[in-house]
Design a protein around this nucleic acid. Structure first.
Lengths: 262, 262
DNA sequence: GAGTGGTCTAGACCACTGT
DNA sequence: CAGTGGTCTAGACCACTCC
């Protein structure tokens, strides 16, 4: 005999899958469902919380439970890296026109609100190892947010690390008030003579932490994509390490791999 | 005044983050925690279920609650595509030695158990559009699982689509009993004269469905990576579309992008 | 104010794990 | 068997949304 809350969840799940309940539809009220299934309220709510964790329904306090709508996508491609590199040496007016985020989202510069904070820290274990530098080396930590003006939650959270001595030659790079830098990080690195040769991106997925759910405005029943981008210069030396947190329900990463001809 | 279950969750979260509770450690029993926080059992359990949803703790029936251990990684790189292409024309003995999965996991062929099922279906809306073919065209649907012999759950779930008429020229390709085909799909396509030129991979993340959690043996508090791989031949025509579901807590996708020199 | 979901309690009984 | 978490109930009261 199956558990009561699972039977209820299965039943509702099937109604949704079969299309008897459409995205956006409101479910019967919890008290109605209690009558219908002949179980207690807490049991019924346990069933609903299962469906919520699967991202199938959305609970709205004071209004009801609704079948969740698919979210609109923001695409992030690996083509952006070559595109950014091509722009890095262009004159500032062109670089300032459109950045990678605008390219990905199709939005205008004016639609976007940008925020950055810089901080100087000492490299600890994992980061030091990734850079191949001694623990304690001075790093520049840059924290970014970009959001659509009409929405409250940003598209993503970015924390980027640079070895301070590699960029200190240009004092502007240590100054957060110079952000957003036209053309992005590759343009910044260009001013201190660094050319990127290769970019590695490592991707995993997990449920958001409480803080991420808060900052990204993520409802329960969503996941985050965690992307660690490591940029290498043409000599193969790691130059920039960025940790990017992206909402899984509205982000699509697109990677294109070209194959050599036979 | 914060909600009781949030205060408890915050408190326990902090103990874990601060390292006062190490991965693998057992938490105090639920009745102990009830005394300690002076709240009811259901409230306390609500707090614990929050932490479970975040993947921070693991509940084990009859034993206790434990701080979750980090899982071992299976890496999947985009370098695998060129590697597979290079192998596609090699003689069978070499192709049979090691496949992409063995390359990714570092395991031996004997450690792996492979399962495949073929089915013929008619293209419906989304897939037909992705292939650029009329709805109703005959497709070959191939479903794969690969698992480590010592574990019960597979590494991933794969569903792959081919246009039947593009491959029917070699009847072996329609026969599931011929799996695992030495050298993989690219070798199979080679037998009907198809050479791949480009591969696109689209990645999103979401909580597992009930079925996926079941099949992949995923505990609550995990996410899945959803990867749609589209393979194009050298003429830019889509040849294979594969949907891959990967456990987010033990999979790392690694994409390398090489940049052109200045 | 009516209707909705959110929080919390007190307690019973079941099921699994280890000794 | 003792100790642990899992399921379920009945009911009180709070908080939000919309008319």
């Amino acid at each position: 005999m199956a558990k009561a809350y699972e039977r209820i969840a299965d039943d509702l799940r099937q109604l949704i899958r079969a299309g008897e309940l459409h995205p956006g539809d409101q479910l019967p009220s919890e008290t109605k469902l209690v009558e219908q299934y002949g179980k207690s309220l807490p049991t019924l709510r346990q069933a609903l919380s299962l469906l919520q964790a699967e991202g199938l329904i959305e609970k709205v306090h004071g209004r009801g439970n609704f079948v969740r709508l698919p979210r609109t996508l923001v695409q992030r491609t690996n083509g952006r890296h070559q595109w950014e590199k091509d722009r890095a040496r262009e004159p500032e007016p062109l670089r300032a026109q459109t950045g990678s985020t605008e390219r990905d989202t199709g939005l205008e510069l004016n639609d976007l609100v940008f925020y950055a904070a810089y901080r100087e820290i000492k490299a600890e274990g994992a980061i030091a190892e990734a850079f191949g530098i001694p623990v304690g080396t001075a790093l520049l930590e840059r924290t970014y947010r970009t959001r659509y003006r009409a929405e409250s939650a940003p598209f993503n959270l970015v924390r980027s690390y640079l070895v301070r001595d590699m960029v200190a030659e240009n004092p502007d790079l240590l100054d957060e008030s110079k952000e957003p830098w036209p053309g992005g990080t590759q343009s910044q690195l260009f001013t201190v003579g660094i050319e990127l040769g290769r970019i590695e991106e490592r991707i995993t997925a997990r449920p958001p932490t409480a803080e991420e759910a808060e900052e990204l405005g993520l409802p329960p029943g969503t996941s985050v994509l965690v992307l660690r981008k490591t940029s290498y210069d043409v000599a193969g030396r790691p130059v920039d390490i960025s940790d990017v947190t992206l909402p899984g329900d509205r982000t699509e990463l697109l990677f294109t791999t070209d194959l050599e001809r036979w």
